[in-house]
């Protein structure tokens, strides 16, 4: 009997039980945590539903959203609005159009406005913020100057009330859907720029960045390979939250009459704007698009919040 091998085998068996599962990269782990979060699942479900509707809406809509099929019914009984009924699940609007069809078809426009304006804000904001952060952290004296100029510009944008900014842009560019997208996107620019810059500056002071510089890694590689990837987390989270605000803001612009000039085209914000006049008589007309906007925004916000949690390195076990 060999006690020594016995000993080793026994110990190996006992320690093996406690072997922890090996994790993957930071993103893989974040994704794993995200999957186990209820909040994220609800957010994703809402988002998926919204996207599916936006994609197939025109085909599943029971009626033509622009034709005033029940026009006579609404017009003859002046002030008598038709609420939900068997034929029109969500009732009719003030021109006798089917609300459900308008909701289903309008989802696409709403999504388009949200996504395009957020992408616009993200790209321009990240560009300014990224250049600014990199310049300040690694650009020496000239970089500091560049950063100061860029940031004062951003500060000026931030100082203006966002809706006012959007209104002025819309006023200059004329009334169109593109205007709404650009206006909403521009409003997001300073937020993304500030966020990425701040995130990059804090990462630039991290020990591993110092370590990379000490290794003799080139400056460009330090910024692109270390600082930027580690700074993107909060910006990505912000973009889901921004999507929610973008939809609401686009709705607000449409409500103010700066949206798509073709008012017949359904869009949730436009629908909300049109319903306002009849709110006393027909609250359901406003409730449908309002609820649509709120729930969608909630979905994006839930996803954003749970992503923030999943990406937080402090919560890693």
């Amino acid at each position: 009997m060999s006690t020594k091998t016995d000993k080793i085998d026994r110990l190996a068996a006992l320690t093996a039980q406690r072997e922890t599962t090996t994790g993957g990269s930071l993103w893989v782990e974040a994704f794993r945590r995200l999957r186990s979060s209820k909040m994220a699942l609800i957010g994703v479900a809402i988002m998926a539903l919204f996207v599916v509707i936006a994609l197939i809406g025109p085909w599943i809509a029971p009626h033509n959203p622009t034709s005033q099929l029940w026009r006579d019914e609404v017009f003859t009984n002046r002030g008598e609005f038709v609420g939900p009924r068997g034929e029109n699940w969500l009732g009719l609007d003030h021109l006798g159009r089917d609300q459900l069809s308008r909701m289903l078809v309008g989802a696409r426009q709403t999504l388009l406005v949200g996504v395009i304006s957020t992408v616009l804000g993200f790209v321009v904001g990240a560009l300014i913020g990224g250049v600014s952060g990199a310049a300040l952290a690694f650009g020496g004296r000239a970089g500091q100057r560049l950063d100061t100029v860029l940031m004062r510009f951003i500060d000026m944008m931030l100082a203006m009330p966002s809706l006012l900014l959007a209104v002025s842009i819309a006023a200059v560019m004329g009334q169109s859907l593109t205007t709404v997208m650009i206006a909403v996107g521009v409003v997001q620019v300073p937020i993304f720029a500030r966020l990425l810059r701040g995130s990059m500056l804090s990462q630039a002071n991290a020990d591993y960045v110092l370590a990379a510089r000490a290794l003799g890694v080139r400056r460009r590689r330090v910024v692109m390979g270390h600082v930027l990837p580690n700074s993107l987390g909060p910006v990505i989270v912000q973009s889901t939250l921004a999507l929610a605000t973008a939809i609401i803001e686009a709705a607000a612009l449409s409500y103010l009459g700066l949206g798509n000039p073709d008012a017949a085209q359904p869009e949730w914000g436009v629908m909300l704007a049109q319903a306002e006049r009849f709110f006393d008589e027909a609250p359901f007309m406003a409730i449908c698009p309002a609820l649509g906007i709120i729930v969608t925004a909630l979905g994006f916000t839930l996803l954003g919040e749970s992503m923030r949690e999943a990406l937080d390195p402090k919560l890693r076990s």
Partner: peptide, 20 residues
């Protein structure tokens, strides 16, 4: 380039390694 010959070991072992 001369940093190849001069290297550094840091205090915080986790902080000085890029988590990604």
């Amino acid at each position: 380039r001369s940093r190849r010959r001069l290297q550094m070991v840091f205090q915080d072992p986790l902080g000085s390694l890029n988590p990604r």
